[in-house]
Amino acid sequence: MASIACSLRAARPVAMRFAPRAAPMARLAMPFRSFSSTRLSLARKYTKDHEWIDLSADRKTGVIGISEYAAEQLGDVVYVELPPAGEWTDQGDSIGAVESVKSASDINAPIRCKVTHTNALLEEKPATINQVPEDDSAGGGWIVKVEVDEEGAAQFDELLDAEAYKAFTSE
């Protein structure tokens, strides 16, 4: 997803909308507690290629999507190509693609991972990516759910947190 960035910056200045508006953003602000509620605590990090990933507290599963910034830069998403489940993908390799404004843009694995679920909603309503790109719930614009191994979990630690990502996209 590296690609979309900047492309339209000059032509179409983007109103930066980084105010938290969806639940996942709010969750980020929460302190990490060792004993949370019934729901597993999730940490969210970002790549410079504009993907986000939530990692479960046990660091064994995750949810991946593209950032609001990316969704805005892409323009209207008309198709989402979802990857087949069951294969391990290395960090940076493609795990699907989105098409918008005549562009096929790769979505890259933020960390090494194995796709376990794909978001079928995106087949019917690709524009969900534009509306709620960072929503990891049912009805949200998340793209895949993944299994994570130790290598992937270690890579996760090196990614950008929300603040660093925000600074990166404001550059």
């Binding site: 997803m1 590296a2 690609s3 290629d49 493609s94 404004v101 562009s103 096929a104 843009s105 790769d106």
Partner: peptide
Amino acid sequence: SAYKLTRL
């Protein structure tokens, strides 16, 4: 025109 965008 058409476009393809990869990471690099």
